[in-house]
């Protein structure tokens, strides 16, 4: 019997929901701002919003990462007015592949992979997902492939930068009681949600 009136399982679940909502909102804000900032070319972006998916992945689990990313993509496209437009589907393809690769990598490698590695994979996944979408649906043109290597390089570098930022955030956040004992809380939360 715990001394506090709060059920730890419920507490964990609530915390998860609230923080994921927070992460999602911040991801949306970051994505929108990043999109609105001038950039040399429209395609080369840092993808800062992905940092939050990485955080969700490391602090909670794969499903958390999925929800952060998917909701972020849909809602920010509504804000930017690009919902159901080519841009949206490029972002969606990129986001889906990125998240899939990140969660799979974390699932397979577990503790052996860190936020930097995951983030780099996320960046690469995003780039490849976008290219795949562009190739299949938009422009079946050889010239497209010329863009891939520099794009990929940018994605790797951005992934690394984002990874370091995520790492910093993780070390800071993990010091907070809300995120301690992460493993038992998230396992319990998962079981609850699976019902």
């Amino acid at each position: 019997m715990t001394s506090s009136a709060v059920d730890p399982i419920r507490l964990a679940r609530e915390r998860r929901r609230i923080f994921l909502a927070l992460f999602t909102a911040l991801a949306i804000a970051l994505h929108t701002i990043e999109f609105l900032l001038p950039s040399p070319t429209p395609w080369f972006r840092l993808g800062l919003a992905n940092i939050f998916a990485v955080l969700a992945l490391f602090l909670y689990d794969g499903r958390a990462a999925w929800s952060v990313n998917l909701i972020r993509i849909v809602v920010s496209s509504l804000f930017l007015g690009t919902f159901i437009s080519p841009r949206f589907f490029l972002a969606l393809s990129g986001g889906v592949l990125a998240t899939a690769v990140m969660t799979a990598a974390r699932g397979i490698a577990g503790e052996r992979i860190g936020p930097v590695g995951v983030s780099v994979l996320g960046g690469v996944g995003h780039a490849l997902g976008q290219f795949g979408c562009a190739w299949l649906v938009l422009v079946r043109h050889d010239g497209l492939w010329y863009l891939l290597p520099p794009f990929l390089l940018m994605a790797i570098i951005a992934g690394m930068i984002n990874g370091f930022v995520a790492d910093y955030l993780l070390t800071t956040l993990r010091q907070h009681p809300a995120f301690r004992a992460k493993n038992s809380e998230s396992a319990v939360a998962n079981n609850e949600n699976a019902l």
């Binding site: 490698a109 590695g117 994979l121 990929l152």
Partner: peptide, 27 residues
């Protein structure tokens, strides 16, 4: 921060860069 990266992280970075270079050559 670089020291905090795991071995696998570094492997991934190297492999991805290599992939990128490989593609650049092919293209």
């Amino acid at each position: 921060y670089w020291q905090r990266t795991t071995a696998l992280d570094r492997v991934i970075i190297v492999v991805m860069l290599a992939l990128c270079g490989f593609l650049a050559v092919i293209v």
